[in-house]
Design a protein around this nucleic acid. Structure first.
Length: 598
RNA sequence: GGAGCCGUAGUUAAGUCGGUUAUAACGCCGGCCUGUCACGCCGGAGGGCGCGGGUUCGAGUCCCGUCGGCUCCGCCA
């Protein structure tokens, strides 16, 4: 091990280029690989910006060459040498620096390294659990470094855009108050107030609204949020939002600003020009795509065939309809599915609540289906034309497959919506490149929670409603549409927001409808209700899921690949082994006692 | 809470119908090699099959339980 002494780096390894030709440089980094030819030794030296080849020549620098025998993978070294053009025919076009190499005169081994548990390269085949345990090594891989660099640039360009548009970045508390609605809170015990707890914010929602009451007019924050719910590929217990709020605005203003923000980010970071983002109401999204986060990159839309099948003698359909349900179908073009594949589709349908999945193969000879006998020639024609099915395709003569779901409206849409996404992937209907944005608007304000037997907010309790739906608040709460909007990218929800309620009376009314009593409302959100009574500007905002956006930008399957230190599915950090038990002394100070469940 | 897939050298995997000493590649260690870049060649070390129990003359292979990783449902205003 040697010290740096007076050596200072002249540039990053990845920056070595023909423009430095002949210059003496000092480079520092990690040994990617050593190729020892007995005579010449080649070493690939890696840092954040890339890799460059070092050459140790025994004929020129015998002592340095001798020393180079001892270096191993992941040693941290410094070299002094000259940037040289590689001999003709030995250039490496797959390397950014492949036209040059460093003829090393002097070498310092700054730190030795144990043999890493896996190779530090993008094509590493180590499992994710091993990589998460040694996350610091995993993060040396260029791919993950690139992801985090992109993340940095997205944050930078968001700050730049918002700042230029009059937004102020203002921090809000992390130790805050538990809220009854929404996700499960992470709690933090208060030492100074035994038996009392802070909650980590699920979002800075209340605080950003209060900042509007305070007159800051435009606020934003790139902020961690915490939700104690089960994890998924796109969900971590702590995640980051680009959160913003603006005063004296309506939906158009927030949505327009949001499009500007996204356009700026994608232009700056990806070099991509976004077109105007299309809009679709919740009703349309669910009707055509089955889901409130439609992937509009491919067709395979849902068709309502309730009327076309109403007359049929197929009991599954007629029963569903008589119970107030609907029948919808998707028509899969030109596929030959085996019985086994159809069973697989039915299995998927059942995981989303479908009780069955009726199918019809349409070929040149007409219908082939277990349910064909229930449909006459006229019925079949009507259904075919309704879903756009045809028996033979000019290209290869293959037929279509119609998949039906009959049930309550919600079940039918979910089942076919999820099947649609599954088939889109399976049949490669989804373009690999490109960013397909869509706004979804006019969400219902409430939905009915069967387990709690009450209305709950679809967005959150501070969401305002369409002016024309105001009177339905009394008569038909489920029919009230909200001033909420979601931004969907490639079939994933990447942001959502709303215009807020800005009157104390209306806010109290909403709490009323949600079954949150005056006392409870006062206790939980009294400070917001108080604030609203002191002169509140009309306001609204939106929050974007930074992790999800970066994951889509970088083509990552999971947001774990764009978070430096993510957690596993049981919310465990493989590297630090958090969470862990704590000393009894710590518990005592917090007036806490652990009761282990059987 | 539930469903599915997966746990075998440091890593990734193979392991037949239950049958001697568990196999390969990469990595690691040693040696040789002056134009390699997944360098090449020769040699070597390294695991008892996630953990616990059971069936059996005999278990990496079968059964039960459990722990862990991933994907999904529920959950995520």
């Amino acid at each position: 091990m040697e010290t740096l002494g007076n050596w200072r780096r002249s540039c990053y390894c990845g920056e070595a280029s023909p423009s430095f030709m002949g210059a003496q440089v000092i480079l520092m980094g990690w040994v990617q690989r050593r190729r020892d030819h007995g005579g010449l030794i080649f070493v690939d030296l890696r840092d954040r910006e890339g890799i460059v080849q070092l050459v140790f020549n025994p004929a020129e620098e015998p002592l340095t060459h001798e020393k180079a025998h001892t270096i191993r993978c992941e040693y941290v070294i410094a070299v002094k040498g000259t940037v040289s053009k590689r001999p003709v025919g030995t250039e490496n076009p797959s390397l950014k620096t492949g036209a040059v190499e460093i003829k090393v005169k002097d070498l310092k081994i700054l730190t030795e390294a144990a043999a890493p548990p896996f190779l530090i390269e993008d094509s590493t085949d180590a499992g994710e659990d091993v990589r998460l345990k040694y996350r610091y090594l995993d993060l040396r891989r260029p791919g993950l470094q690139k992801n985090l660099i992109i993340r940095h640039r997205v944050c930078l360009s968001a700050r730049d855009y918002l700042s230029k548009n009059g937004f102020l970045e203002i921090e809000t508390p992390v130790l805050t108050k538990s809220t009854p609605e929404g996700a499960r809170d992470f709690l933090v015990p208060s030492r100074l107030n035994p038996g009392h707890f802070y909650a980590l914010p699920q979002s800075p929602q209340l605080f950003k609204q209060i900042l509007m009451v305070s007159g800051f007019d435009r606020y934003f924050q790139i902020v961690k949020c915490y939700r104690d719910e089960d994890l998924r590929a796109d969900r971590q217990p702590e995640f980051t939002q680009i959160d913003l709020e603006m005063s004296f605005v309506d939906r158009e203003d927030v949505m327009g600003l949001s499009e500007g923000l996204l356009s700026h980010i994608f232009k700056e970071v990806m070099g991509v020009e976004l077109k105007n983002i299309p809009r679709m109401t919740y009703e349309e999204a669910v009707g055509r795509y089955g889901l409130d986060k439609p992937d509009v990159r491919f067709a395979l839309e849902l068709k309502d065939v309730t009327d076309a099948v109403r007359a049929s003698s197929f009991k599954v359909f007629s029963d569903a309809i008589s119970k107030g349900g609907i029948v919808k179908a998707i028509c899969v073009k030109g596929v030959e599915f085996t019985r086994k594949e159809l069973d697989e589709l039915a299995g998927i349908a059942s995981t989303f609540g479908g009780k069955g999945l009726a199918w019809v193969k349409v070929s040149g000879e007409g219908w082939q289906s277990p349910i064909a006998k229930f449909f006459g020639e006229e019925d079949r024609k009507r259904i075919d034309s309704c879903v756009g099915a045809r028996g033979t395709h000019p290209k290869d003569g293959s037929g279509d497959l119609i998949l039906f779901s009959a049930d309550r409206k919600e079940v039918v849409n979910t089942v076919l919506g999820m099947l649609r996404v599954f088939l889109g992937n399976r049949l490669n209907l989804i373009p690999k490149e490109g960013f397909s944005f869509v706004w979804v608007t006019d969400f219902p304000l409430f939905e009915y929670d069967e387990t709690e037997k009450r209305y709950v907010s679809v967005h959150h309790p501070f969401t305002s409603f369409l002016d024309e739906d105001a009177e339905k608040l009394e008569t038909n709460p489920l029919g009230v549409r909200s001033k909420a909007y979601d931004m969907v990218l490639n079939g994933e929800e990447i942001g959502g927001g709303s215009i807020r309620v800005h009157g104390q009376k209306v806010q109290s009314k909403i709490f009323d409808l949600l079954g949150i009593g005056k006392e409870e409302a006062g206790e939980k959100f009294g400070f917001l209700l108080d604030a609203l009574s002191f002169g509140t500007p009309p306001h609204g905002g939106i929050a974007f899921g930074l992790d999800r956006i970066i994951a889509i930008m970088t083509g990552s399957d999971s947001i774990r690949d764009v978070i430096a230190f993510p957690k596993t599915q049981r919310a465990f950090c493989m590297m630090s082994a958090a969470p862990s038990e704590v000393d009894k002394k710590q518990l005592d100070e917090l007036s806490l006692k652990v009761v282990k469940k059987e």
